[in-house]
Amino acid sequence: MKKTLSDMQPGEKGTVLSVSGDNTVQRRIRDMGIVRGTEIEVVRRAPFGDPVEFRLKGYNLSLRREEAACVSVEV
């Protein structure tokens, strides 16, 4: 099933399909290793629900939901 990263629940895993969004955001997300084929897992949300912590390529990354919405994943 296709989803964006911001719709995923903590504990869910997926594989990245594509990254959209404005140039800077897209590029910075890419630099952190989120490219097509990357496996990514939602770890937890921050106490106020945003940002969100992810796990990929053996490390932990946080994104605001706004940025996470730029990444579409196959769950």
Partner: peptide, 8 residues
């Protein structure tokens, strides 16, 4: 700025 940050 976007919040794209590693949690080491």
């Amino acid at each position: 700025a976007p919040f794209i940050m590693e949690l080491p």
